[in-house]
Design a protein around this nucleic acid. Structure first.
Lengths: 337, 337
DNA sequence: GTGAAAGCGCTAACAT
DNA sequence: ATGTTAGCGCTTTCAC
């Protein structure tokens, strides 16, 4: 293994000069720098990560804890993780992958052992056991999602409240007066995931504000459940003329069930989804949707973390504004017959 | 930060004794061990990962490089990654996440800097640029998938050849004589992914062996492409009575297209898929399938890696045998009218 | 069964 | 602008 002293000898300088060339923490004459860099290249030198971490108390690794639980769309998690890794690399950091399963102890372990400099946790619940830990940890962290009490923490997520409002507004502008929200599985509400609650809040607020009617229908993420719910929604003669869906896996089955029941989409029934753009684009019929910007959230989460590592102050809350794209699944409300 | 000398003082022993209690690398009297462990607990001691890595030249971290490319089913990658992390943790290792994008340089970087002790790479191509590097690296690695030349490497994957054969055998036993293989997108064959080629080989071999007829049809992973392909397959009066599908995203659209064209599945046409069990189970109609055992491959890949780290010899090739589960999409071939 | 002490390879404070 | 050197916290010989 080639080490910093080898490079130093080869370049005819001291080890510290090599170190400073690499870190840029003090000015080096152009000539010396070139000589050192040439030696590094020729010898194929790579600083030893452990030695560096020990001497500098910086590992240049961040932890990313990903959720495993049901009711979470897997591709979104992947998109997020990939964006996080890509962004971290741009800041010369690596990403250590932890699963939710590891829980609070896992976070404590990697933080206390100085394996990581900072942490990102996804899928934060209203009452998340990891939150108090993160508050006491001496290392910076960023949460994806908002716990009930976010004091002293840095959180980021899609503005789900505004997302739901955007969906209702879009439908209201098309003349719809009665809408339904097809939500996450009941389990998600039971464990109080903030995003699900916020979608419901935004939906109800927007509906109330406009004097519309609208109800929340939690739904399991299975085709059967989607069909059953579709049947219930259609059974009511005064049922909704539009549906907001926030439950990726059942978007397609739900639309098919409406069709199978003889309803045209969007002729008789409009559908707006809150889902990743790819899901909306690749549905059988392209869907009007508010995007779940996993890539952007992942990128920004890491940017926030890096800023904190640099000692910068960052906003406690970052709400990514929703972006609604009108596609083929929403249309003016049918004229009452 | 509490360090090993703090623990040593607190327990009234030397630092080396604490170290040995933790590593178990020499015998310690039960009494001393208890006293040391109690001190560790009381002080909340965690060894510094960097210091450890420096002194022992072992980081207890393994790199996992995941694919990003199209034509790869995302949930399978996730399943694999989660299984790898879970298994690594059981062996007291952590997982550093790299993206395919980082390529050969990324692998070299984490290996040469001693950030990781070992590496796992997924989605290995027949002619993969990472293969020669892994061969020269001084650190052990395990490849998911088989390159054209696997000399000196440790590879593991589902036995795709046997998987295709199992599908054909199942159909042959049901009396089918003419079958089609709906494969991966053309791009996947172009970049020579081993698994796609092996499925094709196994399919053709099994078909030939039984004097059946059968052709490969690569297919883009879009519903449109699936519909177009279904139309082509059904246009031929002497077309197949059964289809083997190895392309997760289009399994459902394909079956629906057959139905829409008036073919009953499995009455007129049998369908067998090579896909994760969840896809087969949660399809509109449960599908007969050979499972893609992502979880098992992930677990075994890490077990192999750990064995290599211990200095054990491991098999160069591990082919996970296919497991076919008959479900509602395959039935005896229709009687020729 | 236990202790003393020499590094592991690097960074950064202190020199000049 | 560069060199010298004292650690960073741990593992592991060597010694008893």
């Amino acid at each position: 293994m080639v080490k910093i002293t080898d490079v130093a000898r080869h370049a005819g300088v001291s080890p510290s000069t090599v170190s400073y060339v690499l870190s840029g923490k003090r000015s080096i004459s152009a000539e010396t720098r070139e000589r050192v860099l040439a030696s590094i290249r020729q010898l194929g030198y790579r600083p030893h990560a452990g030695a560096r971490a020990l001497a500098s108390s910086r590992s240049n690794v961040v932890a990313l804890m990903i959720p495993l639980r049901s009711g979470i769309h897997v591709p979104v998690v992947m998109q997020f993780a990939v964006a996080a890794v890509t962004t971290a690399r741009r800041h010369d950091h690596d990403v250590l992958l932890l699963t939710q399963e590891e829980g609070v102890d896992g976070l404590r372990r990697v933080a206390d052992s100085a394996l990581v400099d900072a942490l990102i946790v996804m899928d934060v619940q209203m009452d998340d056991p990891r939150v108090p830990l993160l508050r006491t940890l001496d290392r910076p962290s960023v949460l994806i999602g908002f716990p009930a009490d976010a004091t002293g923490l840095t959180c980021i997520d899609l503005d789900f409240r505004a997302a739901a409002e955007a969906c209702v507004r879009h439908l209201a502008e098309l003349g719809h007066r009665s809408v339904a929200l097809v939500g996450s599985p009941p389990e998600v509400y039971r464990r109080r995931s903030g995003y699900a609650e916020r979608v419901a809040e935004g939906f109800h607020a927007a509906v109330a504000e406009r004097g519309m009617t609208g109800a929340l229908h939690p739904c399991e993420a299975t085709a059967d459940a989607a069909r059953a719910l579709a049947a219930r929604l259609l059974a009511d003669a005064h049922g909704p003329t539009a549906v907001v869906v926030h439950n990726e896996p059942i978007v397609d089955p739900l639309v098919r069930a409406f069709r199978a029941a003889g309803r045209r989409v969007p002729g008789d029934l409009s559908v707006v989804a809150i889902c990743p753009d790819e899901v909306a684009e690749h549905a059988e019929q392209p869907l009007t949707s508010v995007a779940v910007p996993a890539e952007e959230v992942g990128r920004q989460a890491v940017e926030l973390l890096m800023a904190k590592l640099e000692g910068d102050r960052v906003p406690a809350a970052t709400l990514v504004p929703p972006r609604l794209t009108a596609r083929a699944s929403s249309a003016p409300a049918p004229v009452p017959s």
